[in-house]
Amino acid sequence: MTAEELRDRLFASAERMGWPHEEVPSFVSPQFRGRPDASTAPLPQEAFGIRLGAYPAIVAPVTLGTSAEMQEALKLLHSQMVIARSYMTRTELINAHIFICAVNPSPKADWRSVIDIAERDEAVCRKLVWLPDAKKLNTSYEAFRDRTFLAAPWELAVERRDAALDRVQGLAANLLVEAGLDEETASKWIDIVNQPDQDEDTMVERLVRARGDLQ
């Protein structure tokens, strides 16, 4: 997997949230804003500057090797983020992130330890690492996304609430059928009871009428 793919997936997640998103080349410029000369600090060779809603970020690949190699990669990313911050608004600075796409993991590397080095280092800004699983690519990305500001926990809550409501309504329908109503009338009664903004007299009248429609 590549940093470009991570960028595209982040864009898709922002789109799903209804957020504006764009690539921002100035975030990965070698020059500070307002300065003609390039920085003399070493910078990452491949990186993308992006904005997801109110969140500016740099997306870059890092090879998962030794702890020392990760620390060296972080130095490059820190230097790039310092430049990127010169192009951000004051309100954006606190929201800046570095998203790392782990590539070519060494079979001898302690991946968790190396990833922890990156994610626990909050110098300059917060960092999160995506370790793609080639066999479960979407699942691994979703697990990564759910640790970011792009997570949408309310969607799961709505699904659970709706599932619970469906179970309750199913039980109510069964009880009505056992009490003598046919399935169609039971379904109508449940729909009527669930409608908002109606007084008790109106509800009773509609329930009686719904049953009478089938007699």
Rank of each mutant, 00 (worst) to 15 (best):
G65R: 03
L43A: 05
K135A: 12
L214E: 14
K127I: 03
V177D: 07
C101P: 03
D162C: 04
T63P: 04
A210H: 01
V124G: 07
A151C: 05
Y141M: 01
L175V: 04
R209E: 13
Q71T: 12
Q215H: 03
R167C: 09
A68K: 00
V124W: 02
I83E: 04
A210W: 01
I192K: 04
E183R: 15
A47W: 10
V158I: 15
N194L: 07
E5L: 15
E92Q: 15
A60D: 03
T2S: 14
L175S: 11
R147W: 01
Q198K: 09
A102S: 12
R9W: 06
Q215E: 10
A38N: 14
E92I: 05
L10A: 11
V158T: 08
D162K: 10
H97W: 14
E205N: 14
R9A: 09
Q31L: 14
A109W: 01
I94D: 14
Q71F: 02
N194C: 07
A96P: 09
L207G: 09
E15H: 10
R7M: 06
Y141S: 05
V28L: 02
V59M: 08
K108A: 02
G170L: 03
T40C: 02
E5Q: 12
F149T: 02
A157G: 06
R85Y: 07
R167S: 14
A96E: 13
A179E: 14
P132G: 05
W19C: 00
G212E: 15
A143C: 07
A186I: 13
S39Y: 08
E155T: 05
P105R: 00
T91M: 15
D110S: 00
H21M: 10
E155Y: 13
A102F: 02
T148W: 04
V204T: 12
S140V: 04
V82H: 12
N104C: 11
A54D: 13
D37N: 12
I117H: 01
M17G: 04
V204D: 02
K108I: 08
F149R: 09
M17V: 06
A102C: 00
T66F: 00
D116Y: 11
Q198A: 03
W130G: 07
A96W: 06
A68S: 08
K188Q: 09
E4I: 07
M81V: 10
R33T: 04
L64G: 00
M203I: 13
L156I: 11
P36D: 12
